[in-house]
Computed example of a mutant assay.
Amino acid sequence: MMLGLALDFSKPVIKPLVHLVDALTTKGCSGTLTDVRYWSFHPNHRTTLSHFFTKSPWNEEKLLEKLQEWILRQIERLAKQENESLFVSIDDPICQKTKPSSRAVHAIQGCDWHFSHSDHQWVWGHSLVWLMVHTFTQAFPFAFRLYDKTAGRSKIDLAIERLSSLKGKRAQPVYVLMDS
């Protein structure tokens, strides 16, 4: 409710979102729809949640925009209180999968081979471009995009796109942190 979602989303949309957040913040939830239903005490069958995520007319971008506005307000308030600078960290982690698609029973959409600098080898998984906004004491995940080699866009292009979502003038200095 702090995000003001009631103005943009109907009750049938907000209810499953509340159940999702409730379940995902519960210890023991593995992220499957069965677990989400179990840990959120959702009264309906798990297929109801699946139907909601695949077929409901809810605007993901609007939800992300509201969340990002709230995060920026929080982080700017904290920076002003503590007289600290704002930081934006950009990273491109790889969510490594255990089996390449050639050996998996069901191929995972969007997986590919990516070079892992920490492992010094090619690994199978998803590569993300990730932004965190933070002060010295608090950090919030701000934006991320799945990197797809076949889309013709580089990780740098995705990072610039994500940075552009940090619109507006800031009272505190903003430093962008990244690896090589």
Rank of each mutant, 00 (worst) to 15 (best):
G4S: 07
L5K: 05
A6V: 14
D8N: 12
S10C: 09
K11G: 11
P12D: 07
P12K: 10
V13W: 00
I14M: 08
K15S: 14
K15N: 07
K15G: 04
P16E: 00
P16T: 04
L17G: 08
V18I: 13
V18T: 13
V18M: 05
L20D: 02
L20P: 11
D22Y: 05
A23W: 06
A23S: 15
L24W: 01
L24K: 08
T25Y: 06
T25W: 03
T32L: 10
L33A: 11
T34E: 15
V36D: 08
V36F: 05
R37P: 06
Y38M: 13
Y38E: 15
Y38H: 08
S40R: 13
S40E: 09
F41Q: 11
P43W: 11
N44S: 12
N44K: 15
T47C: 06
L49E: 02
L49Y: 04
S50H: 12
H51A: 11
F52Q: 13
F53N: 10
K55F: 02
W58L: 11
W58C: 10
E60K: 14
E61L: 09
L63A: 12
E65C: 04
K66Y: 03
L67C: 09
L67S: 00
Q68C: 13
L72Y: 01
E76L: 07
L78N: 06
L78K: 07
K80C: 10
Q81R: 03
E82H: 14
E82C: 01
E82I: 01
S85K: 05
L86R: 05
V88N: 09
S89V: 10
I90Y: 00
D91T: 11
D91Y: 14
P93Q: 03
I94V: 14
C95D: 06
T98C: 12
T98D: 03
K99L: 13
S102R: 13
S102W: 13
R103Q: 12
R103N: 03
A104L: 12
V105F: 13
H106I: 15
H106S: 15
H106Y: 05
Q109W: 04
G110N: 08
G110H: 11
C111L: 08
D112M: 02
W113E: 09
H114V: 06
Q121P: 03
Q121L: 13
W122Q: 14
V123S: 04
V123H: 01
W124R: 02
G125V: 00
S127D: 00
S127Q: 15
L128Q: 00
L128M: 09
W130F: 14
W130S: 06
L131V: 05
L131R: 04
L131Y: 02
L131P: 09
M132Y: 04
V133D: 02
H134S: 15
H134L: 07
Q138G: 03
P141H: 03
A143T: 03
L146W: 12
L146Y: 05
L146Q: 13
D148S: 09
R153Y: 05
S154N: 08
S154T: 15
I156L: 12
D157W: 04
D157K: 14
I160V: 13
R162C: 15
L163R: 08
L163G: 12
S164F: 04
S164N: 14
S164A: 10
S165G: 09
A171M: 04
Q172C: 15
V174E: 02
Y175N: 05
Y175G: 04
V176W: 00
L177G: 10
D179P: 02
S180V: 00
S180P: 00
S180N: 07
